[in-house]
Design a protein around this nucleic acid. Structure first.
Lengths: 213, 213
DNA sequence: GTTCTTTCTTGACACTCGTTCAGGAATGTC
DNA sequence: GACATTCCTGAACGAGTGTCAAGAAAGAAC
């Protein structure tokens, strides 16, 4: 449900008599968003035009204006959609792991997977977060996503502490700052061509986790 | 000298017989960069055009192309220039402080000052760092700045530990990740209108510093 | 004062952008 | 079948972009 908390919102502009049974409109929005994510992750917010998004798609660029009020709404929807799926994945690890070791292993695995396979999505997120420092339109969505990520990290570490009969030795914001900072660094180095970036990140986290919980 | 390490570079395109005595060219570059920083910090990388930069200036927009190869070089130069000054300021605190308490106080003071008075500069830096995830042209400069910031934080905390007869309990990358993450969060909240953001940051750092060194 | 170089202004060029909208295609409903 | 609604296309618009080049202005050298 945490993953849903940041996923919904952004209903259609003037939905008057829309039937709920099968939400074709919502489904198409998601389809378009997932198609847009590929281009956005490749070029970033500023360099991506709706025309370019549409070109990597079977649709024309006009469709995007039919389903989204403007470019900003599209991008917010995309990132929110992606990050919600991310959070859900980590939460599954927390729900499944029965021992400290299993949780550590599961966490590191997901971490490695996501930074390896979905690096473009993550850089889009950092791009959006930076834009939110300038543009009011992004702030609410970014704040919500950031909050959900902080909560997710806190759930992981809390559970890790619990499985060891301990308590986290650090505040939720500091914990998130730490992990997010390390993640950002690894992401940057990965794009800079450092092949060891992911391994270094995982090693650092493996070393750090037991010291904070 | 650390502040210089990231400040230089970017010589004039085809400097053939330029006299060194008084570097008018370099001085003008700095003057233009400092003027550009105001607009860049207000609008961010993507939304700022050279014409808009020039409008908040006594110069015309053509001058910027006379002194800088292109928009990217201008922006890199601006941010490098600003961050070099930042590092120098913190280093002065480290060099001056004679006790743990003095170092803590000096560090917190500079931290508060800079996030209060120079928030637009900092959001420009985070913007540039995000762009570097997409654009190769920024990567080298961003990596250099990031490295210099990590080293600066390490010098502060090392000295803090030393003054207490201890050693830092955390790796340089993790330390920087932690502080940078908290700073980013505070910056965001400040722009989102949270008046307590700066105070919260300082409180968190005050609590955290003795636990890591 | 004249000449040469450096510095700066101005206007134009060639694009790209988000957005709008008239109209056609597809789909659903009776 | 016909009609209504929803969905989608593609052209057009107006605004804005980085870059460049021609030449004016300022300064230095003699």
């Amino acid at each position: 449900m945490t993953s849903q908390a940041i996923a919904l919102s952004g209903a259609r502009p003037a939905a008057k008599g829309r039937r709920a049974p099968v939400d074709k409109f919502g489904a198409r929005r998601i389809e378009l968003a997932e198609a847009a994510l590929a281009t956005l992750g490749e070029l970033g917010y500023a360099r991506t035009s709706l025309r370019e998004i549409a070109e990597n798609t079977k649709f024309s660029h006009g469709v995007f204006h039919y389903y989204f009020a403007d470019k900003n709404e599209l991008i917010c929807f995309c990132v929110r959609h992606y990050k919600a799926k991310c959070v859900a994945r980590y939460d599954e690890v927390v729900a499944t792991a029965r021992t400290r070791e299993a949780l550590m292993a599961g966490f590191l695995e997901k971490l490695g997977e996501t930074i390896r396979d979905e690096a473009p999505m993550h850089r889009l997120w950092y791009d959006l977060r930076a834009q939110a420092l300038f543009e009011d339109a992004f702030r609410q969505d970014v704040a919500a996503i950031d909050k959900s990520l902080e909560a997710m990290v806190w759930r992981i570490v809390s559970r890790f502490a619990e499985l060891g009969g301990k308590r986290p030795a650090i505040s939720p914001p500091a914990l998130y700052a730490l992990f997010d900072g390390l993640f950002q660094k690894a992401l940057f180095e990965r794009f800079a061509g450092n092949a060891e970036a992911v391994a270094d990140l995982l090693a650092e986290v493996r070393r750090l986790l037991p010291t904070v919980a």
